[in-house]
C-alpha cells in the first residue's frame, strides 16, 4: 500500500431495504465515498461470519452489513438474526486483533439513501484514520503463515502510519 491509501469496504446489502437505499442514493446523485463495494444478499440475515472473515482475508479494510430497520425486515426478523451475529462477530474479530470499527452494521430503509451514503462516508473516514488492515500480519502473523499467529503484532500495530510500507 502506498501513501495514497484508500480503504476498501465490502458492503453486504439486503435486497429489499439497503440495496434499494443504495439505488436511491445513486438515483438522487448523492455523491459519497466510492470505497464501498456492494454485494447483494436477499437478507442481512444471510450474511454468515464466514463471508465477513473472507472479505477481511481477501484484503478488505472494513465490512459493512446493511439491512432493514428492526421491525421492517422483509423476512420479518432476519435483520435481528444479523444483529445477533454481528455482536458476536465483533467480539471475535477483536480477538483476532482487528479493530471492531472495521465491522459495522447499519439499518437503512429503501427510502433512506442518505442514511446509507452517510454510513459509508463515516466508515470510510474511520478506516482512513485506522489505516490499512494488513490481515496477513494482523491475523496470520509476520510471514503470512498461520503458525506464526501467536507472535502476531497486537491491534495497536495496525494503526501505524499509513505511509509506512508493509
Amino acid at each position: 500500500m502506498s501513501a495514497t491509501y484508500e480503504p476498501v469496504i465490502v458492503g453486504f446489502l439486503c435486497n429489499w431495504c439497503s440495496y434499494r437505499a443504495a439505488d436511491l442514493a445513486g438515483t438522487a446523485r448523492l455523491h459519497y465515498a466510492p470505497n464501498m463495494r456492494p454485494i447483494r444478499v436477499m437478507c442481512s440475515g444471510r450474511v454468515e461470519p464466514d463471508l465477513v472473515l473472507k472479505a477481511f482475508r481477501e484484503g478488505a479494510d472494513g465490512v459493512l452489513i446493511a439491512g432493514c430497520h428492526p421491525g421492517e425486515c422483509h423476512y420479518i426478523e432476519g435483520n435481528l438474526k444479523a444483529l445477533r451475529r454481528y455482536v458476536l462477530l465483533k467480539r471475535l474479530i477483536r480477538q483476532l486483533g482487528i479493530e471492531p470499527e472495521r465491522l459495522q452494521l447499519v439499518w437503512a430503509s429503501a427510502s433512506e439513501g442518505t442514511v446509507l451514503a452517510e454510513a459509508v462516508n463515516r466508515m470510510t473516514e474511520q478506516l482512513r484514520a485506522l489505516g490499512p488492515l494488513r490481515w496477513r500480519q494482523t491475523v496470520l502473523g509476520g510471514d503470512g503463515h498461520p503458525a506464526a499467529a501467536a507472535g502476531a503484532p497486537k491491534a495497536e500495530a495496525v494503526a501505524t502510519p499509513m505511509t509506512e510500507e508493509a
Binding site: V8, R37, G59
Partner: peptide, 24 residues
C-alpha cells in the same frame, strides 16, 4: 445465493486489493 457463489463474489470484488496485498 450459495455459499460458494458469495465467497467467489467476495474474492472477485477484491481482486485488486488482494493482488496488492500479495505484492506487499
Amino acid at each position: 445465493f450459495t455459499h460458494r457463489q458469495l465467497m467467489a463474489q467476495v474474492e472477485g470484488i477484491l481482486w485488486d486489493v488482494r493482488q496488492a496485498m500479495e505484492v506487499s
